[in-house]
Amino acid sequence: MRKWLVWLTWIPASAGMTLVAQAAQVRAADGGAMSVPLPGAAAGDAARGRAIVANRQVGLCLLCHTGPIPEERFQGDLAPDLAGAGDRSTAAQLRQRLVDAGSMNPATIMPSYYKTDGLEKVGANFKGKTILTAQQIEDVVAYLQTLRAQPGAAP
């Protein structure tokens, strides 16, 4: 069961030491929606975002989600298909969910990718680190926005 093994591999994936506090500032300044890129990040790159989502040790997304990434054979079914994500949510909503999924659904099993507080017993390799960096979040948001039934239509 290689896939399970891979999930277990310890990788100091995120060099992102930025705190969610900064993200919260963005949100506050923006009246609740995270419509501007995270501090320090350039505009997202959809191709890089796709690679992050596809990578089980970096994005971890396909552990739970299925998505239109046919070359990845083993995809989870704990969460909605990512196809059409760009139709269902705005960039701000996607950013918000990635940064802190619990702020949209407190009972969610989806990890918060840009948050270090409120966590218990975090392994030493991961303590104080976010799962993704600000730039990686922007890249994933850019990729998710391309997941549309009708490319170009406003969500």
């Binding site: 069961m1 290689r2 896939k3 399970w4 891979v6 999930w7 089980r56 396909l62 552990l63 739970c64 054979r73 083993f74 995809q75 989870g76 079914d77 704990l78 099993i109």
Partner: peptide
Amino acid sequence: DDNWGRKLAGA
């Protein structure tokens, strides 16, 4: 308890 029987990637 909540997600048994479902797939976590391939497992």
